[in-house]
């Protein structure tokens, strides 16, 4: 970032997180549905509050990124008057989560917010299915990285049911042009043997191209400053929805999706293309259904 600022270059971010917070480069534009730390968990807490949850457990990986997001969740919980009954960070060397999940069950929380990395997410979901978190839990999930990735979704299969977790896009959301993009993507992905679904990152990568194309077409220029000025002044319509940026280069209005896994079967990648396997419960403008609570009930819901 300092190099881009020093050279006066336009820089597009791709799913970065607050990388411009200190440098404040005015020609930086991040393309990710979140902006600040709280934006990751807004929807999760809104749903939890609606379900009447009054106590919270936080389990987060012990590193900067996860801690930032967990802090966002803690702030939201405090604002909403939700009492923390369990709050632990786990080191990246943790092999098995059975003891931690058992400790969460003993604390009897009504919401469990987890900020984990892919390997840990798989291990945590397995441990939750094996040990259980208690019938009082209304919502489980929130910030688990990895549950958006096709290999992990297809491996975990039905173990995912009931989990409410963040995402960037899931089928059923009405973004103009995204279905056509995903059709073209799927054909090429099969040839290239890459992620067959491509919901999480590819639409956002494509949207970066759209953003630049719109700016260049409108200004008829490839001058960095001209393009940056245009992007700051205009809303851009892409396959991941309309985007406007704030001064810091993050999306002015965060749109982190919270979706609940429902009726997922084992060993079937194709099922995830159907709307309804991940029901969007937040943001309201893109909702495809209401959250089912408590967590135990959601696990068996279709």
């Amino acid at each position: 970032m300092p190099l881009a600022k020093e050279r006066g270059k336009l820089l597009m971010g791709n799913f970065s997180f607050q990388v411009n917070a200190k440098v404040q480069h005015d020609m930086y534009f991040n393309n990710s549905p979140w902006n600040d730390a709280s934006s990751w968990s807004d929807g999760f807490f809104a749903a939890g509050k609606k379900a009447g949850a009054k106590t919270l457990a936080v389990l987060a990986a012990d590193n900067d990124f996860a801690q930032n997001l967990a802090n966002g969740a803690r702030t939201l919980a405090e604002k909403a008057g939700i009492k923390s009954v369990f709050d632990q960070n786990y080191p990246p060397t943790t092999t098995d989560f059975s003891s931690l999940i058992r400790a969460i069950r003993a604390a009897k929380p009504e919401m469990v917010f987890v900020m984990s990395y892919p390997n840990d997410s798989v291990a945590i979901i397995r441990a939750v299915n094996e040990i259980g978190v208690g019938s009082q839990v209304q919502l489980f999930g929130g910030g688990m990285v990895g549950l958006q990735f096709t290999p992990i979704m297809s491996t975990l299969g039905s173990l995912l049911n009931g989990v409410t977790n963040y995402n960037s896009y899931v089928p059923g959301m009405k973004y103009p042009g995204i279905e056509d993009f995903l059709k073209r993507y799927a054909a090429k992905a099969a040839e290239a043997k890459v992620d067959p679904l491509g919901f999480y990152l590819p639409p956002f990568n494509y949207a970066i191209g759209q953003i630049l194309e719109r700016a260049i077409t409108a200004t008829k220029s490839i001058n960095d400053k001209t393009l940056a000025n245009w992007l700051h002044a205009n809303e851009v319509h892409t396959i991941v929805g309309p985007i406007r940026w704030g001064k810091d280069g993050e999306w002015a209005n965060a749109r982190v999706v919270q979706a609940q896994f429902r009726g997922v079967a084992d060993k079937d990648v194709e099922q995830f293309r159907q709307p309804g396997k991940q029901v969007v419960i937040y943001p309201d403008a893109y909702k495809t259904g209401d959250v089912i609570t408590p967590f135990e009930k959601a696990r068996s819901a279709k």
Partner: peptide, 26 residues
């Protein structure tokens, strides 16, 4: 670099012994 996992009947389920639940994989 993606994570790889396997499936088996003893992965993801547990043996319930009173109030205790012991993961079969372990």
């Amino acid at each position: 670099v993606d994570q790889r996992t396997v499936r088996a009947a003893y992965i993801g389920s547990s043996w319930e012994l009173g109030d205790y639940r012991i993961p079969y994989r372990m």
